[in-house]
């Protein structure tokens, strides 16, 4: 994709927009001049071989990379038209609006209820009945309620891997994010749990803007509306998933998704 020639104005339905966006680790340019829009309510899969910059780009969307020494950025990365890297931006508020689910489920060593309520409580005092409602709604949203409703006070660590991952999604949903970032959310799960998470992504699409990094081509093709292919820090191709997986425009994309390299 010719990143330079794209129109600089974010599309009207764009929630996340990158314009000439670069990420550096020290002097190494890990993400190069990215121009892309993630549309509202759509699921975007980010694919590419290891080290191509896809997770680095994803982590910039809620500024997780601030925690990495020597990581700097240039260009613009916007959430609803507001510069994510603006110096006066409230990063905590950004992370509330942009939730994240990681490769391995990381529940807190607390009860199931407290895990989901954690982020909500951080925002300030809240009536128990309201909190109960949020917890139930979030667990239902993450398709976990029926499995845990009778043991909300049990430790989250007693749940299976797949359930823990859905709990982490419920925890992210509880603070009502606009965007959900998923960094290989199924790579540590068995096929059945993976299928549950994929079903869940389908249910969440439309309500949330989702960006998912995955090494699993079939998963990318199953769950996403759009696909972005990264290679060596460049966004090679971005487009409708159905098109990317039947008729990619770039030879590199074709070679990667057909397993000829990477």
């Amino acid at each position: 994709m010719d990143n330079k020639t794209q129109d600089n104005t974010p599309q009207s339905n764009a929630v996340v927009s990158a314009r000439d966006f670069c990420v550096y680790y020290g002097t190494h340019k890990a993400v190069k001049n990215i121009n892309v829009d993630f549309a509202r309510g759509k699921v975007t899969a980010i694919i590419g071989p290891s080290g191509c910059g896809k997770s680095t780009f994803l982590r910039c969307i809620n500024r997780m990379n601030d925690l990495v020494d020597g990581c700097t950025t240039s260009g613009k990365l916007m959430l609803n038209g507001v510069d994510i890297y603006h110096k006066r931006l409230d990063v905590t508020e950004l992370r509330r609006r942009v939730g994240m689910v990681f490769q391995r489920p990381n529940p807190f060593p607390k009860s199931i209820y407290d895990n989901v309520a954690f982020g909500v409580r951080l925002k300030g005092r809240i009536a128990r009945s309201d909190l109960d409602e949020i917890v139930e709604k979030s667990l239902r949203g993450a398709a976990l309620w029926e499995e845990v409703k009778d043991r909300l006070s049990s430790s989250a660590l007693g749940l299976s891997g797949g359930q823990q991952q859905r709990l982490c999604i419920a925890r992210a949903l509880a603070i009502r994010p606009e965007v959900l970032l998923m960094d290989e959310p199924c790579s540590a799960l068995d096929p059945k749990s993976t299928a549950r998470i994929e079903d869940l992504i389908a249910e969440l699409s439309g309500k949330y803007t989702i960006a998912i990094v995955t090494h699993n081509m079939q998963q990318a093709s199953r769950v996403s509306d759009n696909t972005a292919f990264f290679y060596e820090g460049n966004l090679i191709e971005f487009g409708e998933t159905a098109k990317i997986f039947t008729n990619p425009k770039k030879q590199e994309t074709n070679d990667y998704i057909t397993g000829r390299f990477g």
Partner: peptide, 9 residues
């Protein structure tokens, strides 16, 4: 194999 792109075609 669930082929895609040129392999699928």
């Amino acid at each position: 194999h669930q082929p895609v792109a040129s392999d699928l075609r």
